[in-house]
Design a protein around this nucleic acid. Sequence first.
DNA 1: ATTAATTAAAGAAATATTTCCTTAATAGCG
DNA 2: CGCTATTAAGGAAATATTTCTTTAATTAAT
Lengths: 219, 219
Amino acid sequence: MNSSKSNIKKQVSEPTLRRLPVYLYFLEKVREDGIINISAPTIGKNLKCDSTQVVKDLAVTGIKGKPRVGYNTYELIHALEDYLGFNRTNEAFLVGTGNLGSALMAYQENQSLGIKIIAAFDTNEKKIGTHVGNIHVLEYKKLFHLAERLNVKIGIITTPNEVAQDVAEDLMNCGVKAIWNFTATILDLPGKIIVQNTSLSTSVAVMLRRLNDSEKITN
Amino acid sequence: MNSSKSNIKKQVSEPTLRRLPVYLYFLEKVREDGIINISAPTIGKNLKCDSTQVVKDLAVTGIKGKPRVGYNTYELIHALEDYLGFNRTNEAFLVGTGNLGSALMAYQENQSLGIKIIAAFDTNEKKIGTHVGNIHVLEYKKLFHLAERLNVKIGIITTPNEVAQDVAEDLMNCGVKAIWNFTATILDLPGKIIVQNTSLSTSVAVMLRRLNDSEKITN
DNA sequence: ATTAATTAAAGAAATATTTCCTTAATAGCG
DNA sequence: CGCTATTAAGGAAATATTTCTTTAATTAAT
């Protein structure tokens, strides 16, 4: 369940990486209010986390804050977007246009997700030929053909669990380097392929357990 | 960004909790194959993680494995479902029936998510009165009225970011104890309210960054 | 029955992550 | 112009998490 290690310079930790978009969204909100500079303690107070952690997290972008002033909001937003790759067009293929797949396609049209789904694939004949927004649902077989022309690095799997492994291998063979996996299947792929598992059950599990814990405590 | 601490017995760590549904899904697959007993090393090999970790994770359920035999698949599945609360009907309200909200409603009809959305709310008049599967979309105002009768503990927020805080407070005032927050807003609520943040941007951020890292390494 | 191999469990060590502490910088204020 | 309060940065300590090691149990094979 772990990722490989870089030999050039050590990878930024996952907890830190997961916090960066949170800072980014907060800073965007702050910028709208016309705030030019913001300090780590202020960010920490708003986001309910330690100011030291804020400083260390933001340090990965290379941006330096000024003592007594804090960080330049605009500069920091840019650096975060750049670091996270949100300012590039990260093109992606999506496989499996069920509820979740369709939702992701529709969702990214409004909400900026950081990636742009350029084509969706399905084996269900009823789905093929339809489109969500301006993304067309193509026959799954065409994945290989399309991948030749377009140099897509990211694949999204929103298929039933049973076919996830096969789809993942196909995507890999089409040149995909990173897979966003919404199924409950643990994909067995070479270590060089980045796999991001986003199973909804995982979140539910944590929440339900915490709820259960809290109910047992007499407040 | 942290949760409160139990004073009765120490909480199970989040990494462990996040792995439990992964074991559960794997075991369900294994059970279908008619396998009665399975060892931690076998689970570890399949899920690509350390066998010691498997043993420690599964220990939280209270199930004991037998040396030289492993765990009883059936017993373990039951214990995990019970521990995670997946075998209970965890009723939930959903607020915000946009793309993501609708998808969640449709999704849970097929895929067992561990929770059951019993009513959805929106302020958009075009949405009110419609239904996804057999879940009706109701006027947001009716949340308070409905909450009086039904004792719903879980709230799901799939609204635009701007209104998330207000919705969260309303849900809390309606007796909701746990909130599954899909927005990028960091909710400011009393510590006793369980908040599970599932921002899609977070996953994308981690994936894009790892992809970027891997491209810089000469394999 | 005895032995050998496998395995879970419990504890120790290693690693990762967060929090704390000190230092140096600097802008605002007198 | 110097002092003070605030702050980022860097390193140290504390905590959390994972991995390693040892031990004891138990089943299968002889």
